[in-house]
Each structure stands twice: as C-alpha cells, then as structure tokens.
Write a protein that binds this DNA or RNA. Structure first.
Lengths: 73, 73
DNA sequence: ATATTGTGTAAAGAATACTTTACATCAAAA
DNA sequence: TTTTGATGTAAAGTATTCTTTACACAATAT
C-alpha cells in the first residue's frame, strides 16, 4: 500500500466532549485501555470496526474523528 | 467486541460509478484482487486505511461505502 | 506519607487482515 | 470451438491489530 498517515483527535474529543478517561472509552467500545492508548498515540490505526465504534461514542462520522492523508515527498 | 456487521456497496459502486473490475479497484487502492473479493463478499472488513482508500476512489465518505450496524436479537 | 487515579510503555501471544499461488466456472469474443 | 476476461474459492504464510500482564510515573486525595 502507498504510504499514508491516519491521524485522529480522540484525545481532544475525550476531554472536550464528555470528559472521559481512556478506560471509560475502552469499555464503551469494547477493547482494552492499551488499544486506546496505542491509537491515540498513533502507534497503529484501528480496524474499521473499531473506528466506527469510536466515532459512534462521540456521535460523529468516521471522517470527523480520523483523518486520512497520503504521504507525498 | 460486541457483535456487529459491516456491510458495503463496493460491488454496486464498481458497476454504477466507473464500470471498474475487481482487479482495477485492487490496483487503484494497492491491494490484491483477492482482498477486494473477500471484502465485497463480506468475508472480513478492511482496515481503516483500506476503507479510506476505497472510499476515495469513489469520491465518497467512508460511511457512504461501508455501513456499520450493531447486531441485536 | 501513602493510597488512588489517569496515563505511558513494553513484550509475548492471539486474532484478524492481507498476500501468494493455484485452480475452477461462466460469459463473451475470436 | 477455443481463448480470454471477470469472478469465486481455498490453503499456507506474513503482517498488523488487539489482548494480557506487568510495571512506571505524576498528580491528586486521604
């Protein structure tokens, strides 16, 4: 796959929208806290399923939480 | 993770929008044809990255290509 | 002072996405 | 009728996502 970057604003959403901890978000979407940490920190990007679940928690579209951009030089 | 279903209308989009083969779509998004087959047939759902790439080909939002719904009984 | 809460990191293993190779079927073209 | 192109399936291997366990640190509360 062509190199790209998927960033997200989960951290901001957690604070601004519902004042929610990583653990609470993890529970709401059904994964472990470490998974949330890894995604927030950009270690890897989630599965589509998890992306949907996270977006739903904040009542947003996937695109409003995750930003896809191709990497060009 | 709570059971859910992710469906998609890639097949329709291929036919209606650009008259595109599985192989062409695969090349455009940088995966093998088998991956497209598996996703169209619902064998598994793509990574978020691939979902973005497919949506981009059709100039659509992720939500316009993939539909997430929780399974309730 | 020490317990608790929220966050970060790391490493081994399980689960899922994706590749590679190969072969089968059907429809349409030569 | 033979060939070609589009699609479907399957199995073994690689890569990535996610879990589990464990520990560390800083800020706040007791």
């Amino acid at each position: 796959m062509v190199p790209c970057r998927i960033s997200n604003n989960i951290r901001n959403l957690r604070f601004n929208q519902n004042e929610m901890t990583q653990q609470q978000l993890a529970d709401l979407v059904g994964v472990t806290r470490q998974t949330i940490v890894a995604i927030e920190k950009g270690k890897y990007s989630p599965s589509l399923e998890l992306a949907f679940r996270i977006a739903r928690v904040f009542r947003l579209q996937v695109e409003e939480v995750f930003t896809y951009e191709e990497v060009r030089n």
